[in-house]
Design a protein around this nucleic acid. Structure first.
Lengths: 167, 167
DNA sequence: CATAACATGTTATAACATAACACTATTAGT
DNA sequence: ACTAATAGTGTTATGTTATAACATGTTATG
């Protein structure tokens, strides 16, 4: 049931991933990871991850809480933040700083230096890796400083949105 | 009254800028810029910029508000946020997303793609430019996407802090 | 000097996040 | 299987960051 990846007119970076497959794969992948690492993939954690990956768009913590509530889970803030922290630690969720929002990781090999492309109009977000984006962190080990984590977010307008209206 | 830039043992990126000069220069520079652009460098705006540049470290909006209050200015939140937005629009202040804090720009030519190096221990922040950092945004114009703004933050531990204690 | 545009002041509230503690479920050691 | 330890979830309260909406003052321009 693969979707075609070519022939689209919309911004490629937002579309060149097969979400149907992504969803199924991602669930399987996270299950395996947790199994292997002897971590509990509890109903709550599964649900949070599913909420994030089913739309595959950035969601605020409180949006996630609402979704949890609708699905019969507790929906007080710490619930979401704790699970999100946990999933982020293990690289299955990233935080988009510029949006105060969270998004499921779309990188099968869990790059720990993700970069995000964010359309400020439709708020779609694409996760790109160094090579695709043309960004190079290759030599980003600053002199006398040990970089542990990088945040890279590129905000702008995607083709679809810029076509739809002239700013 | 220039300070020496060489011979220090601490992390260079945090120290290789002459802050005494930076302060005076920065004020002069912002004055000139505002004059040239016919913008008002009002007492409030000046004060906010001074607060930020005198310590040259990231300050939260509410810290800035406290400082404003101490100096006899109004200190309700919108005051700070409005001025900060204004100063950011013109490139004299940047927001450090990872800290929810604001910092005076230390780049005399107002690069609009600043990158920040943040020590998570001492919370010192250094603004670096592409060449120094080894990061390359040269080709970061993503296919079918117009990048307007980039956020780049590298978090880690500076030499001074990593020397002080083993994590 | 009127008036439009800009700047600041103020109140209230929205949006985002965590502390602290209680309780439950799972795991590991005996 | 029992129990102690650890991990996970639930709940209340509160802390922190940011903005909406509207009032007032100030400056530039015809």
């Amino acid at each position: 049931m693969k979707k075609k990846r070519e022939g689209k007119t919309t911004s490629k970076i937002f579309d060149d991933h097969d979400h149907g497959m992504c969803f199924d794969d991602a669930i399987e992948q996270i299950e395996n990871y947790f199994l292997k690492k002897n971590l509990q993939f509890t109903p709550l954690r599964r649900k949070v991850f599913e909420i994030l990956i089913r739309d595959h768009k950035p969601l605020g913590a409180y949006e996630i809480l609402e979704a949890l509530g609708r699905d019969g889970f507790s929906s007080s803030p710490p619930i979401a933040y704790r699970v999100l922290d946990f999933l982020m630690e293990h690289g299955f969720v990233h935080k988009i700083q510029g949006l105060n929002a969270f998004i499921a990781c779309s990188n099968p090999n869990h790059s720990h230096s993700p970069a995000f492309v964010i359309c400020r109009k439709c708020e779609k977000v694409a996760e790109v890796d160094e090579k695709k984006s043309g960004i190079s962190f290759a030599s980003a080990n600053i002199e006398n400083f040990e970089v542990e984590k990088t945040t890279v977010e590129m905000t702008g307008v995607c083709t679809t949105c810029s076509r739809a209206a002239t700013i």
